[in-house]
Design a protein around this nucleic acid. Sequence first.
DNA 1: ACATTATATTGCAATATTACGATGAATAAC
DNA 2: GTTATTCATCGTAATATTGCAATATAATGT
Lengths: 111, 111
Amino acid sequence: MGVTKSDLFSEEQNDLANVAKAFAHPARIAIIQYLLKSNACINGHLVSELGLAQATISQHLRALKDIGIIQGTIEGVSVSYCINPQRWEEVKKIFNQVFELYKAPGNIDCC
Amino acid sequence: MGVTKSDLFSEEQNDLANVAKAFAHPARIAIIQYLLKSNACINGHLVSELGLAQATISQHLRALKDIGIIQGTIEGVSVSYCINPQRWEEVKKIFNQVFELYKAPGNIDCC
DNA sequence: ACATTATATTGCAATATTACGATGAATAAC
DNA sequence: GTTATTCATCGTAATATTGCAATATAATGT
C-alpha cells in the first residue's frame, strides 16, 4: 500500500525512522555536508553546486527543516541555511543510542 | 519522477543514503532492536512480535540483509537472523563520520 | 510419498517520494 | 512603480515503497 503502519511501533522507533529518512537521499546528504563544511551559513548556492533544479533543492531543504536539523533565515533577497546545533546533537544521540546497544558477542559469528 | 539521480553524487554520499534507507522504517528499526536485545540469534518470532504479515516481515528482513547489516542461517526448518558485527561497526563508522564533521560554532545561533 | 512447518517470492493495489516547469511572494535596485 | 533576483509552492509525471494474499520452496516428521 505504501502507507507505513506507524501505530504498530513505539514513538521512539517512529522518530528514528523519520530522522533516518532525512538522511536517506544523497542530495540531502550533500546539503548537510555542505553546511557542515562551510560552518558559516550558506544559501542556495546549492542549486549550482548540486546538479538539481531549484524547486528540487527547495523541496529537500524543507524536508531537512521539517525534522529540525537545519534552519534558515532571510538575508535580504536570499536565505541563509545552517545546521541547528541543538537538534544536531539530539539526532546524533538518537542514532548513537541504537549503535551503543550492540555488544559484540563472544563468538564472532553468531549464526 | 521518483527516481533519484545517483550519478550526481559521490559514492560515499550514495552509500550513506542507502544505509540510512535501511533505518528509515519503524518495522526495520524494531527488527534491529529485537536482534540487538536478544544477542542470541532469533528467527521469525518477529511475525508475532510486530503486527505485520509474514510476507511483509520477510521483505524488511531482505532489505536489511541487502545492506549487510544482518545475516541469516538456516536452522532446520526455520532461519536464524542476527546482526553482522563487522558490517555493524562499519555502518556505525559511516554515520559517525558525518556526525563528527560538525564543530559547534562560537555563536550558538549561526543564522 | 505425504503432510506439516517456516520462510521466500510473486503479483497487485495504494500511497510516498523524487524531480521539474510554472507560478507566486518578497526584497532590492533603479 | 517597474524590473530583476531569490526562494517557496503548486501541479504533474514517473518511479519507489509498503503491505498483503497467494503461491512457491525447502526441510522435517510420519
